[in-house]
Write a protein that binds this DNA or RNA. Sequence first.
DNA 1: CACCCAGATGTGAGCGTTAACATCAGTGCA
DNA 2: TGCACTGATGTTAACGCTCACATCTGGGTG
Lengths: 363, 363
Amino acid sequence: MAAGRPPAMSDVAARAGVSHQTVSRVLNAHPSVRPATRERVLAAIEELGYRPNRAARALVTARSTTVGILTVGNAHFGPASTVLAVEAAARAEGYFVSVSSLAAYDAAAAAVALDQLVDQGVDGVVVVAPLEDVAHVVDDVAPTLPVVVVAARPGVPTTSPARYVCVDQRRGAQMATEHLLDLAHTAVVHVAGPGGWFDAVERAGGYREAMEARGLEPVVVEAGDWSARRGYEVGERLAAEVREAGGPTAVVAGNDYLATGLLRAFWEHGVRVPRDVSVVGFDDIEGSAYLVPALTTVRQPFAALGQAAMRTLLQERSGQQPGRPGPPSHPHQRPERGHDDGPRVAAVIEPELVVRGSTAVPR
Amino acid sequence: MAAGRPPAMSDVAARAGVSHQTVSRVLNAHPSVRPATRERVLAAIEELGYRPNRAARALVTARSTTVGILTVGNAHFGPASTVLAVEAAARAEGYFVSVSSLAAYDAAAAAVALDQLVDQGVDGVVVVAPLEDVAHVVDDVAPTLPVVVVAARPGVPTTSPARYVCVDQRRGAQMATEHLLDLAHTAVVHVAGPGGWFDAVERAGGYREAMEARGLEPVVVEAGDWSARRGYEVGERLAAEVREAGGPTAVVAGNDYLATGLLRAFWEHGVRVPRDVSVVGFDDIEGSAYLVPALTTVRQPFAALGQAAMRTLLQERSGQQPGRPGPPSHPHQRPERGHDDGPRVAAVIEPELVVRGSTAVPR
DNA sequence: CACCCAGATGTGAGCGTTAACATCAGTGCA
DNA sequence: TGCACTGATGTTAACGCTCACATCTGGGTG
């Protein structure tokens, strides 16, 4: 073994008195290696501090055991939590995780970020950038590479070859709205997140459905982004309306940051929560239980989401042909696939309503 | 070119009527390629949709152009923001980013996570897990691989071969404390984050220094973790003390979540902020400007931190010998290195005090 | 006791790229 | 006119691993 170079398989082989192939068999848990031989090889590995060269392995197997995660580039609570959950799930499956985050939230930026992941040779991509613009970018890549989109909307992507893992935000919004309606609220408004986001659209949809199911008029105010600042700005306008007779008595906010801003604006304008107006948020971010008042919110199942995404990705991968030539996959092997099946939703996970002090019966 | 296999360099070469090496030269921007030839090669690349195989390149160059990020495994605002900042900086430098997060916050878990990054063949590691336990794990790896630790404490790691990029949390805590003292507070307590964290220790230290500099007695309460819940629990106790004559009139919280819990507890117990007690946080998380009252806090320079970390890593990498044999690096080439120089702090970045409504002159 | 078979191991090739060296044409200058 | 030199290209050999196949051993079977 030459000095200065990390030990290679051949070095281990020489030391153990076997061929490099036997070392490879030990490493890959091949059955036909005698225990004594295995021991010797393992000892040599240990003594030399040998680590397999992943690049060499990836080169010959045409697999990187790396999955890419495409996400939005800021510390949004939801995406950040989801990324961590996916990462944990991936590592549990023996995969490495490469992250690419979006500088801007448009299709072009997403295409660039996705490109980088593909360049890196990932075996699959999990998209945690729940914007419609972004979702369609993956359509080009998905036929070649397994792609799982973490999204909110079971009903949307019809022709996309990617698979979808969803939190049923529509259901979550229904739960939130029905909670308020059950408290006897009738004038409930929704402060929605930005239009291009799956979550925002679905939550607004769920809210609308719940209202209409009881014959009530839905009122949606779009906040523009997910920030507390926007929540505050909208809250200032709402505060005035809340005071009028027939004004809203409850608000479903698109997420907890918006809700935070709403609470602040209401407080500033002397509108008491929940006495004058009830507020519900989404996400259950750290601290929302300790706002004043404690925020009723729809908690997101991030861990389950991450696991479902990884499971789907692996399943997808095993169904896909590897990069090397091989026989075409049998058309009936995976009957759930096919563009005429509509959206290829692999999992739908239910969120959970957490009732706290920001909701009460209307005055 | 065989069907079913993605195009290789030789396919491009054949199509362009050149040798594969010329294709390689075009790809690596080698100067001596005639413009006309380059054009032809680029056209062939375009037509074939060729993408270089990173595994093959990594194999021969013994470089992966991938950096690992080791981080804590939950959605803590600080670490999450830092990871994203490092990721952005890395991509700007043409590096890929592989994330490994810690399941538990102990040295064993860190060693495992770090191992995985090394197995993956990263060219360097950025550690964004600001715990002392974790920091020492990298010492084994750092002699072989460039390691940059994002930490809070310029003065701590003395013999570590890793380099440190720091936010001057001590200074931040001084700023926060002095802000209160300048408002004429004298009884200022500190609710500190968990002991093993660099940030917690440094912030507590800065607080102590600022107090002692004015001849005041520092009082530190350790919260146990960084959560709003713990802030609330400590706040309940503090609320009682605040009411007593000679009780604290101001609190420096270890981060904004703790501050959130404090605010809640104070509110519940009828202690008004800032009238009865002033509160300062750390981080400036989303929403802290819209708490009631708006939180005075020490904002962290995450973007600068990420950039500094990457810059340091690249600098470190260029000073390190590659994996292949090579002449030993000249001992005087990088005079700032060496264990006798004390901690190898590459950058210290200043945080920023953001004054809002939660601080005022004492009653 | 020859024969076959399965288990255990070794041999050789090739994955797609870069590094090192070889080759071949021009150019400038004596 | 010739020769050293530079710029543009081609050729060959690794890199470290896995795959396909060849080889060798030892126990059962007829």
